[in-house]
């Protein structure tokens, strides 16, 4: 029943009740190449929609991860610290970044559905 929404910056948010699991899409991890480090926010941090919430680094690039919606960070995936490659191997599963308690669920309506996101990817190639 989990509904997943997407941003143009290739973050996803998988909605679970009033919280959402945030990570980067498979397309994004492929573009980045081998992820070597993920800088996660601290639990309890309040983020605005579109604000920088994390940083993901490959050998040659660092990219900011923006919060898809406003809210409070209620959990982060500490396992990425010792195994950043998980982001490449399983980006939408065990390679998640953080869990956000969604402040305003209406913001989700501005994000792309899975079908929309697929169509968006087609425009990029």
């Amino acid at each position: 029943m989990a509904d997943t929404r997407y941003t143009k910056d290739h973050e996803y948010i998988r909605i679970e009740g009033d919280t959402g699991i945030v990570g980067i899409t498979s397309y994004a991890q492929e573009q980045l190449g081998d992820v070597v480090f993920v800088e996660l926010p601290s639990v309890g941090k309040k983020v605005d929609q579109g604000a920088e919430a994390a940083v993901v680094e490959s050998v040659k690039a660092a990219s900011e991860i923006y919060a898809p919606v406003a809210g409070e960070v209620v959990a982060v995936n500490d396992a990425l610290e010792s195994a950043p490659g998980t982001v490449n191997e399983d980006p939408t599963g065990s390679g998640w970044f953080m869990k956000i308690r969604i402040a305003d669920s209406s913001q989700l309506n501005g994000l792309m559905s899975e079908a929309d996101y697929k169509a968006y990817l087609d425009t990029l190639s």
Binding site: Q31, L32, G33, S58, V59
Partner: peptide, 9 residues
Amino acid sequence: NRQGRPSQA
């Protein structure tokens, strides 16, 4: 070119 260069051995 936003991605930097590849780094695969």
